[in-house]
């Protein structure tokens, strides 16, 4: 095959014959893309599980079961428990401890319980949001990395053109095609990352809202109980 005319330019050949900086950019983007897809799937599974477990817990909680029995069960299986269950467990444990100390006012008991629940809530939210910043970074930066590779490749293609007397499109076409692959890869990495980031941020917000609502409602229930017994 005559390289000057490039009859059959396959993607693989273009990648193999690309200049080293462009190849480095491509490898970088491939790695970023792979990692972002990995986190997309990790988060997808994790959020699906979180939603399912939260649904189950809320059904059980509002189904009028015994809170003490529920607390026993949750503290026994802490590792497999969901986010809402852990918040419930932390709040109820603090509540029990404060109740045991005699002479505490209602406000002190409820404030302490709420603080305990909020701490667990922050921790759970932090765990849920892990890796999301990576998706955001890939989504915003990889098009620029791809663009850098493209600009570099086109620069090299035109530099090669300077040595020939008569410039034809066939002399630069392979170089430009090779360079544009870098942009394509950047976009391929960025688009799913951005979509995943937006989707998961929204999902986590909804979960956070659920957890906060539960905290408030649970505080109310506990407060009522304290007031009743007092």
């Amino acid at each position: 095959m005559n390289p000057e005319f490039g009859q059959n330019i396959s993607v693989v050949q273009l990648i193999i014959h690309a200049s080293v900086p462009v190849q480095v950019v491509m490898a970088l983007l491939l790695g970023a893309s792979f990692m972002s897809w990995w986190f997309i799937f990790v988060k997808w599974f994790a959020l699906k599980r979180a939603r399912r477990v939260a649904d189950r817990f809320e059904r059980e909680f509002w189904g009028g079961g015994d809170i003490n029995a529920m607390y026993q069960r949750v503290s026994a299986e802490r590792d497999s428990a969901g986010e809402l269950e852990r918040i419930f467990e932390a709040g109820f444990r603090e509540f029990m401890k404060l109740r045991r100390q005699a002479g505490q006012s209602v406000n002190v008991v409820i404030d302490g319980t709420r603080r305990a629940m909020r701490a667990t809530y922050q921790r759970e939210l932090d765990a849920l949001e892990s890796h999301l910043s990576f998706l955001a970074t890939v989504g915003s930066v990889s098009p620029y990395i791809g663009l850098f590779g493209t600009v570099w490749g086109i620069m090299i293609a035109f530099m090669g053109l300077s040595s020939v007397a008569q410039a034809t499109l066939a002399q630069v076409a392979p170089g430009i095609a090779e360079a544009l692959i870098a942009t394509a890869m950047g976009l391929f990495a960025a688009i799913p990352a951005v979509i995943g980031y937006n989707r998961y941020t929204h999902d986590i917000d909804r979960l956070a809202n659920r957890m906060e609502s539960f905290m408030e409602e649970f505080s109310n229930i506990l407060q009522r109980q304290v007031a009743k017994s007092a």
Partner: peptide, 28 residues
């Protein structure tokens, strides 16, 4: 405080690999 950090998810890694292989095949 109780931490429960899940380990690296292998299934997700395999799925990510599958996505890239499918994309590469489509491209080639």
């Amino acid at each position: 405080p109780h931490y429960s950090r899940p380990g690296p998810n292998l299934a997700a890694g395999l799925l990510a690999l599958g996505v890239h292989i499918a994309f590469l095949l489509l491209l080639v």
